[in-house]
Amino acid sequence: MIRAENLTKYYGNIRAVEDLTMEVPDGSILGFLGPNGAGKTTTMRMLTGYTTPTRGKAIVEEIDIQREPLRAKRLIGYLPEVPPLYPELKVRSFLEFVAEVKGLRGKKKKAEIERVVSQAGLEKVVHRRIRNLSKGYRQRVGIAQALLGDPKVLILDEPTIGLDPKEIVEIRALIKSLGGGRTIILSTHILQEVTSVCDSIAIINEGRLIEFGKIKEVEEKYGSTSLEEVYISAISRGGEA
């Protein structure tokens, strides 16, 4: 479960997110949509505890991330917008570092690394230095890192960006298979990704949440079966309000 309560973030006078409240229940995969600069990344950064909200709360499995950051962070796998990779390290050393910090040791660590390496299709590059990887492979290492430790909550900021078409299909299938029991938020600009992977959507514009709910319910509300139409009319309506 992930809950945002009146999440608000200002950078000086710039409003990035304003009064965002939503709850993503267990087992749900939420597609987080919105134009460039709408505040998706900023929201995810508050939910993961990277940045402190100006106002409001971010709650993961009933734990307030500002009050008990360690407990909350143990439950979250996060893929930031720019995959956070140390170019000097080999893929394996990098994954070992993340696994150790997530509390995995010995055999369990090894098994977990093997699991995410195969899930993200990294077998061929585990012994290469991250600096020498192609963009798509870097993205995959970023995904693998988020999956380590099998976290209950996954927050993925544009997970399929930079991947080749075959890999996109595979990663989407992977994310979908991770559902069930886990709570996932993924941001994207590809509406097709939302229809193929997610069960609910949140649309944000200029820092405000303008639509939230099951995809079907939202589509019904707009009297349309095309997510594209829904998105465009939601954004333009939100703009007028």
Binding site: K73, I76, P80, L85, Y86, V98
Partner: peptide, 14 residues
């Protein structure tokens, strides 16, 4: 600069 701090500060580390 490399934006790896976004990982560092969201991992369960104090």
């Amino acid at each position: 600069r490399q934006r790896t701090e976004e990982l560092l500060f969201t991992l369960p580390l104090t």
